[in-house]
């Protein structure tokens, strides 16, 4: 387990390093990073301060080291859009809202995908299997940003059941969470179905039945516990999709999270904030992947004891 964790930690560091290189490179691709990192109307002393912060008069490798140092200390500079506000602070103020939405969406997805996936494997080729297949196909074809607007039009504008946008009550959470979770349902369900089919066909399921274990327990304990390991390996990719989903969905529902912040920052060409968001997002994703890997060990004793 320890060796496994150390190996994963190494990969994590490598990924983070790569992210910083990409962001660093893109920020300097325009030729004159000063224009990217500074508001057009910057005064002379601001200009000097930013040049100093990022070491823009130094050779590239020194700039990178400076940049890494800044990133590690959490110094991304002030927001250009809201002068005087620290970019990282703006991000950290909103990250909780984004995580809240993402978590609820994930719960929704799991709550829906697990039963559908299990039942469509247990009753293969039955009505529920076909319905599940269609849900999966539809889920992968619906653009988040559009279905969100359609939901608003139906449930908020016409039926007036739910608030159109913003954050506050639990009602505010429903539509954005469903919109993000929808896509995950499709992918997760397919994975669980195929993993369940494989698991149900195994010898240990045969032996469990031969022991006289109830079919309910055979399916939900023996088969599902094994089948659950497979989707876990795809969680990294799913989290990446969750980020994509949360960014467009936050815009649609004006959810005051990091996604909305970064899109506004891009529109305002507020590069320090974009940079801070990207790095924070990368950290969250990488961290989530690490947590998943630990969970993976918990779920699969063969790894835990390696």
């Amino acid at each position: 387990m320890l060796r496994y964790l150390i190996k994963r930690l190494g990969q994590t560091v490598f990924t983070l390093f790569a992210v910083t290189v990409i962001v660093f490179g893109l920020g300097r691709m325009t030729g004159d990073p000063a224009t990217v990192l500074m508001p057009v109307e910057a005064r002379q002393e601001d200009r000097a301060r930013i040049m100093e912060l990022w070491g823009l008069d130094q050779p590239l490798h020194v700039q990178y080291l400076r940049y890494i140092g800044n990133v590690l200390r959490g110094e991304f500079g002030d927001s250009l859009q809201w002068p005087g506000r620290d970019a990282l602070e703006l991000v950290l103020l909103r990250i909780g809202n984004t995580l809240e939405l993402g978590l609820v969406a994930l719960l929704f997805a799991v709550a829906l995908a697990v039963p559908i996936g299990v039942f469509s494997a247990v009753y293969k080729n039955s009505a529920i299997d076909h319905v599940g297949k269609f849900i999966a196909l539809l889920g992968q074809s619906l653009p988040h940003f559009w279905i969100g607007i359609v939901f608003i039009w139906i449930f908020a504008v016409n039926l007036r059941w739910l608030p159109t946008s913003g954050r506050g009550t639990w009602q505010h959470l429903i539509m954005p969470a469903v919109v993000i979770g929808w896509f995950q349902v499709a992918a997760l369900m397919r994975l669980i179905r195929s993993a369940m089919l494989e698991s149900l066909d195994s010898e240990y399921i045969k032996l469990a039945r031969l022991k006289g274990v109830r079919e309910r327990i055979v399916i939900w304990k023996h088969a599902l516990r094994n089948a659950a390991i497979v989707p876990l390996t795809y969680f990294g990719i799913m989290i990446a999709y969750l980020v994509v989903g949360s960014i467009t969905t936050e815009v649609v529902f004006s959810w005051p999270g990091v996604g909305l912040l970064v899109v506004n920052a891009v529109t305002a060409r507020d590069f320090p904030v974009v940079q801070a968001v990207t790095i924070v997002f990368a950290f969250v994703i990488v961290l989530a992947n690490l947590v998943v890997d630990v969970l993976y060990g918990v779920f699969d004793p063969r790894i835990r004891f390696e």
């Binding site: 990924t15 790569a18 992210v19 990409i22 893109l26 990294g236 990719i237 990446a240 999709y241 980020v243 994509v244 960014i247 968001v277 990207t278 997002f281 990368a282 994703i285 990488v286 992947n289």
Partner: peptide
Amino acid sequence: LSIPAILV
């Protein structure tokens, strides 16, 4: 695959 393209 582990870096969301939308961030890029």
